[in-house]
Amino acid sequence: MEAEGLVTSSRGHGTVVRQRVPLKRLGIARYDKAKWRDGDEVAFIADRVASGRGYRRNEQTQTVSLIEAPPVVAAAHGLPEGAEVYARARLVDPTPGPAGRGGGFRVLYDAGYEIDHMKEELFARAPRPEEVKLLQLPPGEPVVELHRTTYTASGTVVEFAIGVHAASRFAWEYDFKVPDSAKDKKGQ
């Protein structure tokens, strides 16, 4: 049953049935400006509300540090490899963290960088050994890696985020207007 991901076992806690209902990770709706700019509902709270789950403020452990940009991060920002960037690492758990009113997008907004649009890419892959341990994955469970690039209206990249999610614990939802490039070209 553990190999199928139905139960987890750990020293001192025994074997327990895994929760099977994935957390719904909203696509576009989780970034609604009214939630973080005008209120204090950051994206992870929006996901929990949409999934019918409770939450507590400060339900994330976070670290923020100045690092040398890895190649994928440097490329996303149009920077040379090794340029200094701020990195924020988060793990959702019950340990309090320093999440502020409106979260990271509010910090950018207050600094004069209003977000306008994003690009998200999803990749399924096998987890690295450290991810298996950190995410407490059962044998054989894949992860989904999300790359999100956030832009201002002028095209300035203000955030590049990499999220690693246990595949069975999340479900993504996107609701968007279907483009019609032929119609758009006629109207120009």
Rank of each mutant, 00 (worst) to 15 (best):
A3C: 14
L6R: 11
L6H: 08
S9G: 10
S10M: 14
R11C: 15
R11Y: 14
G12S: 04
G12E: 01
G12T: 01
G14C: 12
T15F: 13
V17Y: 09
Q19S: 14
V21E: 15
L23G: 04
K24V: 09
L26Q: 03
A29R: 01
A29E: 09
R30A: 07
R30H: 08
Y31S: 07
K33I: 05
A34D: 12
I45P: 01
A46Q: 03
A46K: 00
A50E: 04
A50W: 02
Y55W: 15
T61K: 03
L66K: 05
E68V: 00
A69L: 01
P70F: 01
P71T: 03
V72N: 10
V73W: 02
A74N: 02
A74W: 00
A75M: 06
H77K: 03
P80L: 14
G82R: 10
G82Q: 09
A83F: 10
A83R: 01
V85G: 06
V85C: 10
A89N: 03
A89D: 00
L91W: 01
L91E: 02
L91M: 07
D93M: 04
P94H: 05
P96A: 14
G97Y: 03
G97N: 07
A99Q: 09
G102M: 02
G103M: 04
G103Y: 02
R106P: 00
R106D: 09
V107F: 14
D110Q: 11
G112N: 11
E114A: 15
E114H: 08
E114I: 02
I115R: 14
D116Y: 13
M118S: 12
M118D: 06
E120M: 07
E121Y: 11
F123N: 00
A124L: 08
P127E: 12
P129L: 00
K133G: 05
L134W: 05
L135V: 00
L135T: 00
L137I: 01
P142C: 05
E145M: 13
H147R: 08
R148C: 07
Y151H: 13
T152C: 15
G155A: 07
T156C: 14
V157M: 09
V157L: 13
E159C: 10
A161F: 10
G163R: 03
V164G: 05
A167E: 02
S168A: 09
S168D: 05
A171H: 01
F176A: 15
P179Y: 05
P179A: 13
D180Q: 07
D180P: 02
K185W: 13
K186G: 12
